[in-house]
Design a protein around this nucleic acid. Structure first.
Lengths: 241, 241
DNA sequence: AGTGTCCAAGTGATCTAACCAATTCCACCA
DNA sequence: TGGTGGAATTGGTTAGATCACTTGGACACT
């Protein structure tokens, strides 16, 4: 016996029911990208709840990039493209305190593979983008070597982007952001941006780009790993100075 | 002149500022798993905003499983485990048929490298843990083959753990967890848990573990990649059936 | 002392009723 | 024709109140 006590006592919170409802409508294609939802006031009266509750649900969906709230205009379904929906994936690994040695090690595991994929998929437009980064890097070396880290990040982020894999792209972006925060904390910047080091880094970027141009996945992957090992040496050196 | 008009017109919505603030506090270790946040009323007055706005932020964080709102008790930081934080990303896989291929591709990039690290760092205790997973996998095959995916996750998650890199561990555990969610969506389960396939998977796990026991990083890495390529074939096959 | 009951305080959940701010669109005028 | 101003629409935010759940301590009973 005692079956009579089965079942959950806590029903789901109202605002969670609303988010589930919207997500269901999206899955059933009753709501499609670009569609506009009814105004908040209307939704509230339709469902017999307060506007505040509706807004809690809508804001949650907006944070997941499922909908977009446009002030004065309305609520719209986003494009629902994968790169949008995984935008917050970095939460999975960025909420912890990480040493930059762990960071660089993770990049050594991920970037060579991502670069190999990029070699297979990069378009001529993509190559032009990376070429431009290199050109700007040389210019930066002559004028403001201190600004190089920004271009370094851009090169790596773009390379990850051309891997054509949105998850790898997001992971790389998250890791590079953490690298920035980490280097700011450890004051590594001064050592890493000496003109000689910047020049070596640009040369290695060029080598990687050449391999990408040749669509040589193995070579590109190898060179990216070598580059990241060099970065690790630089960081280790700066750390012990 | 006209400098007076500088600056961005659209500032970030207040509730988004609050979520960012909470996430920053977590990153800075000022808030840790299990910690309790101040009551909503207090947060509102501390930040000089209304309670409704605070709640929109908190509900968004709760939807991403970063915090938990306990009615009558308070607001608490969750465990922040990767398996928990990726829960809501399954929407990507139900909306886009090809996303799970990108997922397995990302795993193919990351897991071999992480496994190589594990080969260098795994302890005898770690090996015992993986041995136990294998033993339970064989037992599962004989009794409840349908429960194998859970053990599959466990093998990969533990391997990630023994890589000794928290970042890689979390990324890998998150991706592995999502694999299960995506395979549920695509109704692959039936095909994937056939006894023959389960047996093949366990044998490959054994091969990986043997390489780890030998501390052979290259071999372990190779075998992990081969295993994931096999998983991809299984998924592709199930997709077109 | 141990134990169970009950109540009050604390806290999240929801509602109501405003007003502010950005967008949209149409009527009106030049 | 075309711009221009203002009203209507709609999201953003606030304030205050009430409901519902949890917690812990006071109290009575054993």
């Amino acid at each position: 016996m005692n079956e009579q006590f089965r079942g959950t006592v806590h029903r789901e919170a109202i605002s969670d029911q609303i988010t589930d409802r919207v997500l269901s409508l999206i899955r059933e294609q009753q709501l499609r990208p670009g569609d506009r939802l009814p105004p908040e006031r209307e939704l509230a009266s339709l469902m017999g709840v307060s506007r505040a509750t509706v807004r809690e649900a809508l804001r949650s969906l907006a944070m997941m990039n499922v909908i977009e709230l446009r002030h004065g205009s309305g609520t719209y379904i986003t494009s629902l493209e994968p790169q949008l929906l995984v935008e917050n994936f970095d939460l999975v690994f960025s909420l912890n305190d990480n040493s930059f040695l762990e960071l660089i090690e993770a990049r050594q595991v991920i970037e060579p593979g991502a670069t190999a994929l990029a070699a297979k998929r990069i378009t001529d437009e993509g190559i032009a983008v990376l070429d431009d980064v290199i050109v700007r890097s040389w210019h930066c070396l002559k004028t403001q070597p201190g600004d190089f880290p920004q271009l370094d990040i851009e090169f790596h982020a773009k390379t990850a982007e051309f891997s054509g894999n949105v998850l790898l792209m997001r992971i790389m972006q998250g890791l590079t952001q953490m690298s920035i925060a980490s280097s700011h904390r450890t004051a590594v910047d001064e050592g890493a941006v000496s003109a000689a080091r910047v020049e070596r880094a640009i040369l290695m970027h060029e080598g990687i780009l050449d391999a990408l141009k040749a669509r040589d996945a193995d070579l590109a992957s190898q060179r990216m790993l070598k580059h990241l090992l060099a970065v690790e040496d630089t960081l280790r050196g700066a750390q012990t100075e």
